[in-house]
């Protein structure tokens, strides 16, 4: 079954535009990132690999601690490793800036 996880982080910085990166392929994930009018980053993760909520929390908390961006982020995951997720996050930010 697909596990759906949601996370929220306080955020203030704006991004210029939306970004789409990645692909739903084995060991990979797709990200949709959009500027949000709310003072927070709200994240929805849908993953086909269940039981890794704490790992997702660790990867996302580190990213949003470094980049306090007010965005709406959706991740569709097909077993991406934390390193791949971190790279996709940076890639999305690079496009959105």
């Amino acid at each position: 079954m697909i596990e759906t996880l949601t996370f929220t982080y306080p955020a203030s910085a704006r991004v210029a535009r939306r970004a789409h990166v990645g692909v739903v392929a084995s060991g990979n994930c797709e990200l949709l990132l959009e500027p949000s009018p709310e003072p927070c980053a709200s994240v929805t993760v849908r993953t086909s690999v269940g039981g890794y909520a704490t790992t997702w929390e660790a990867v996302l908390a580190r990213f949003f601690a470094r980049h306090s961006i007010a965005v709406r982020l959706e991740i569709d995951d097909f077993g991406a490793t934390p390193a791949v997720v971190a790279m996709r996050l940076e890639q999305a930010l690079e496009q959105a800036r």
Binding site: I2, E30, R46, S48, D76
Partner: peptide, 8 residues
């Protein structure tokens, strides 16, 4: 529902 991740 079949445990497969969808793409946008």
């Amino acid at each position: 529902a079949q445990g497969v991740a969808a793409q946008s």
